[in-house]
Design a protein around this nucleic acid. Structure first.
Lengths: 258, 258
DNA sequence: ATATATCTTTGATCGAAGTCAAGGCGTCAG
DNA sequence: CTGACGCCTTGACTTCGATCAAAGATATAT
């Protein structure tokens, strides 16, 4: 996965605003500035990498910021580096020759990004929102994996989780109505923020445009819009702004998922 | 994955007809009879397991045969064992509460079968054809994986491949027409047998019923039947028997895949 | 060989989602 | 403020695939 397209490389001097929670740590460290901030944000790990692995990669990791819409990696292009999503949402998609597009996965912080052990990307990766990535060159990470089975095991766990999610989504794509697809999408986003609770109120921002939602659900934007309006009319969702969503009762939403 | 349902356990005495290619080896071995036959069939490996790993599991592996239609593992039930598909096709599916079904994967020999490291199955596994499995109890295999990073790496490679396939299929489910879905399905089956060539003649048997194909493609059986008839009328496929398929020109079929 | 059940094909009709078109709303530049 | 642009919503109409229905194959059992 080549994630260099459109990169703004960040150094300790211009990080203000990115890493609010841990900014005070940034200038006082032996391990790479940007990955220490990762650690602060994600319980001692930069995504899948723990402190000692970060140390091993010290010279190689690099934090980069991309704005929404940037293409991070292109289908069928060489994989040159891997990354961890540290902030924001990355969409993975595939396109047919005539331009029809399907989003095949969403990656949230602190997911690992990139098709391991492959010369070519199987999908296109694009920043759905503004995104911060902790980037690692492909050979460096693969060397570390080869000598560190525990790391490969963690990556295996994420891969298995992604496979579960992909299969869950295949049911939605193949067998659900437009209305159920929208409900499933909202439910998925809502529970992703707080996987534990499955009932009660939830307020959040949609990380995707209507067009992205359509590409994710195999629908047109008109159908997405109409079905959202229908769910709003039924008081299943309250749309407080074009992307601000409030779910008064997650249980009621779940009943609409088919 | 509990694969014990409906099992006929096989011993060396009643293997005739199953392992034709390697039957003569069956009675002259120190390693388990049935997995030696696996080896003969799959270049020294029983699916993902190589000879020394088989030796380490000698007491645990067991070859079993299931007839078409047998449920091998049920969604949301405890995983009790893993397996390798040694012959036949296994379909992985998920169902909605109201009975709508979606096939989310197909496993051919010599694929590994079972959701690693999980207490529960994420999918239902069912024998699409008569199937032979080389079964391993969950704890035994997990112990072996823990002390054998190379094995985990091989399983990782299969998992990554399955994820690629699932994402490829999401495009088909979400964005292709019924006609393109059928063409894509036939193309996928045809190339699965011989991944190298992408043009020319191909003759094979469909491993699935019309109903299974419909569940795989997110269609009804009527639509599957109609679109197959349409492709037949256009001489893209020749249907020589209800399951016997001949593709005169794989290139022409590929053009119909969207 | 005949009966029964299952699977598949084909036809007629219906409806959910797509397409085409117009208009609303928020944002940004001038 | 005003106009332009991008994104979203809504309406009118069309179309593809689902549904309902029936008849033709194929397999299994008696």
């Amino acid at each position: 996965m080549d994630i260099r397209a459109g990169i703004t490389e960040l150094d300790p001097g211009n990080l203000s605003g990115i890493m609010d929670a841990s900014r005070k740590d940034i200038h006082n460290s032996d391990i790479p500035v940007l990955c220490q901030s990762c650690e602060a944000r994600h319980k001692g790990m930069c995504g899948v990498l723990n402190s000692s692995e970060l140390l091993a990669l010290a010279r190689s990791t690099r934090m980069v910021r991309h704005e929404a819409g940037t293409e991070l990696a292109a289908e069928a292009m060489p994989v040159e580096s891997y990354a961890n999503v540290m902030r924001g949402v990355v969409k993975l998609s595939k396109v047919l020759e005539d331009g029809r597009q399907q989003i095949v996965g969403l990656q949230f912080a602190p997911d690992f990004l990139g098709r391991l052990f492959s010369k070519e990307n199987a999908v296109t990766a694009e920043a759905a929102s503004d995104v911060d990535l902790c980037r690692v060159p492909k050979p460096a990470l693969e060397r570390l994996i080869a000598e560190n089975p525990a790391l490969e095991h963690r990556l295996m766990q994420q891969t298995l989780r992604e496979l579960d999610e992909a299969r869950e989504w295949m049911v939605t794509l193949g067998r659900k109505t437009a209305s159920e697809k929208i409900a499933s999408f909202l439910y998925m986003i809502a529970t992703h923020l707080d996987p534990a609770a499955t009932v009660g109120r939830r307020v959040f921002d949609l990380p995707l445009t209507r067009s992205d939602i359509a590409d994710f659900l195999g629908l047109t934007i008109e159908t997405v819009s109409r079905q959202l309006s229908k769910l709003r009319a039924e008081r299943i969702v309250v749309i407080t702004g074009i992307r601000h969503i409030e779910i008064p009762d997650l249980g009621a939403l779940k009943k609409r998922c088919g």
